[in-house]
Design a protein around this nucleic acid. Sequence first.
RNA 1: GCGAGUGUAGCUCAGUUGGUUAGAGCGCCUGACUGUGACUCAGGAGGUCGCCGGUUCGAUCCCGGUCACUCGCCCCA
Length: 414
Amino acid sequence: MSLPQPVRGTHDLLPEDFRRHAHVRNTARDIAARFGYAEMATPIFEFTEVFARTMGETSDVVSKEMYSFEGRSGESMTLRPEYTAGICRSFISNGLQQNVPFKVFANGPMFRYERPQKGRQRQFHQIDIECIGAAEAKADVEVIALGAAILKELGVLDSCSLQLNTLGDRESRQAYRDALVEYFSDFKDKLSEDSLARLHRNPLRILDSKDKGDQALVANAPIFTDYLNDYSTEFFAEVLEGLDMLGIGYELNRRLVRGLDYYTHTAFEFVTTELGSQGAVIAGGRYDGLIEALGGKPTPGIGWAGGIERLALLARDIPEGPRPVAIVPVGAEAEAVALKLAHELRLEGISVEMAFKGNVGKRMKRANKLNARAAILIGEDELVRNACTFRDLDQGTQEEVPLSSLRAALSNLG
RNA sequence: GCGAGUGUAGCUCAGUUGGUUAGAGCGCCUGACUGUGACUCAGGAGGUCGCCGGUUCGAUCCCGGUCACUCGCCCCA
């Protein structure tokens, strides 16, 4: 087939796919609003350093997955690979430090140069929640509870588990990181190739290695909780207490490590087993150092991102679009009357379908295919009486209705 | 970036141990029904068998490359 194809890793969203996406988006937007998170948007591309500085030069995303290009005056810009950095940049650019807690919902396309798989594309879409300027554990609890509420509404919460961990504050995390590097450095010859690479890039990742040799070493590795300072320990306890209070179940997962440098304290993922190796549907955490890394005043923050494609694959009970009413003119004379009626009804807010051509049989078939609720037939007979034949397509019954009573008949459909 | 699998009609898939006109179901179009859908019946359109090259008298089938998708690794939403 030499037909034009979309670029690898990108996909068209035909109306049916789009409806699923829209449902995820709309559900998230509605529930976010209940929690006090207003919708906003930032540009689809930013100066490259916005991402490089915040996500970490050594992270996979920054080191090999960004779509970067040069502007005309030579600055490097990048199609956003995630939303958090852009929103934090916006927070600083707009001087919003007086508006804290700054609670927002956002959604849109993201771009990462990765090997496509099911539930993983080069252009994909995320819903995103950020709560900037709140250092309290209550914010963590709220943000996680919001994620759970959205999953519940989408009908996927039951097939997900909430994985939870703490990375401690920067001090704790750095101390633990150093301890791990020191420990694993003694076993350089035994570590797998992957883990050897991780040793300097992201040693915490080694803990999650699937290599059996690595796992044996991990068994005796330093334990995170020994390196958490009092503040970090208490903070995490408070988060757990909050979740318990709300009846939100979770699993502690000490190996849950985020790939991006900016995370501190709470790290979490809602994970499903129904999507192959792409298990995370919502993932996020606290990023207390991020705003500072971007050049803003030290400001704490917490948030998460959810994959719309992944959620759309799992979501149940996608609502159908509004069911139209089909107007079917019979004969040239009725055509004009029907056209006018269709327009009037549409202006009144009623969804109306009227085919451009075809005999009655064809138009009825089309009405059926479009899932029309009713058909309004207008022919010469009806014209004389200023009426129409009103057919209920679900019941298969019909009756003649004066045009003056048409609105009443329509609102009786239920 | 690494390893493996798949690629036949709009969709889901048969098939050919390499041989002349490549099939089914669904969908689409036309008609039976010149004013009635969802049911029935009868016809019809639609394929350079992903693309390029090689082997062969001959390739949709074998081989190589390439592209896309799927699965695993890496990583992530």
